[in-house]
Design a protein around this nucleic acid. Structure first.
Lengths: 120, 120
DNA sequence: GATCTATGTAAGATAGTGCTTACATACTCG
DNA sequence: CGAGTATGTAAGCACTATCTTACATAGATC
């Protein structure tokens, strides 16, 4: 997951991902979209994307066709979902699992340590 | 956006974000959650998170209280949403904006250049 | 005001990224 | 087979990240 997020933190790689989101494109075609950068540089970005599981490759004769691999973004998406999910939903989900959310412990702890200003 | 994604690519920083998602915590309290790491290291992570807009700080007497800043994850979330949105939705959205999706141009181009095998 | 507590910053070691150019590999086609 | 085409890899360089330890600063407290 760290790898996927790190990979996606680069604008060139995000652009590549958009390119191969719906279409299967050859490395050269992809490189053609980045005239300001050498072809090997793009090739290396493709390697990062492959290694982090964000794209998959398929040989096609002379060429190598790249395509987005959905599974690669699951964990990253899950993290963001977790961040956005509202507190109530998190508590509810935890209750349904019959466990107590990790966060709650620190809640109690911090409340004890906090001063007047921090209790909104 | 690059900064936010890069910041979130680090597991320590993700853990910090989860800690300050709902609660406002002092730097020391946060550092206390990472016994394997020196306090300055955590402080530096907090700086990265602040600089990338993912958290906001508030002085409270002696301490500094950190809290998640929602706005900081908007762009990153938007990118993932874009990736997950289905092709049809993208085409429709583009049509409503009376424009032609950027992707479509490369579709035509690549189709011309592709061979038999690539036309699934 | 002296001292304690909470926190940030500086300096430096080590490792990792992202380019570039030069080179290697391998399929294709006449 | 031999030239051409598509693509990856190696080496090297500048820059950036992430730790650590030592130090600086500032509010709190007695």
């Amino acid at each position: 997951m760290d790898e996927a997020l790190r990979a996606v933190a680069d604008p060139t790689r995000r652009a590549i991902l958009r390119l191969v989101r719906d279409d299967e494109l050859a490395a050269g075609v992809i490189a053609g979209h980045f005239p300001s950068m050498s072809r090997p540089a793009v090739s290396q970005h493709l390697r990062v994307l492959t290694d982090s599981g964000l794209v998959e490759v398929r040989p096609d004769g002379n060429r190598r066709l790249y395509r987005w691999r959905r599974e690669g973004l699951r964990d990253a998406t899950a993290f963001l979902d977790e961040m956005w999910s509202d507190r109530l939903a998190r508590l509810k989900a935890a209750a349904e699992r019959e466990e107590w959310p990790e966060r709650t412990r620190s809640e109690r702890t911090s409340r004890r340590q906090q001063r007047k200003e921090t209790s909104k």
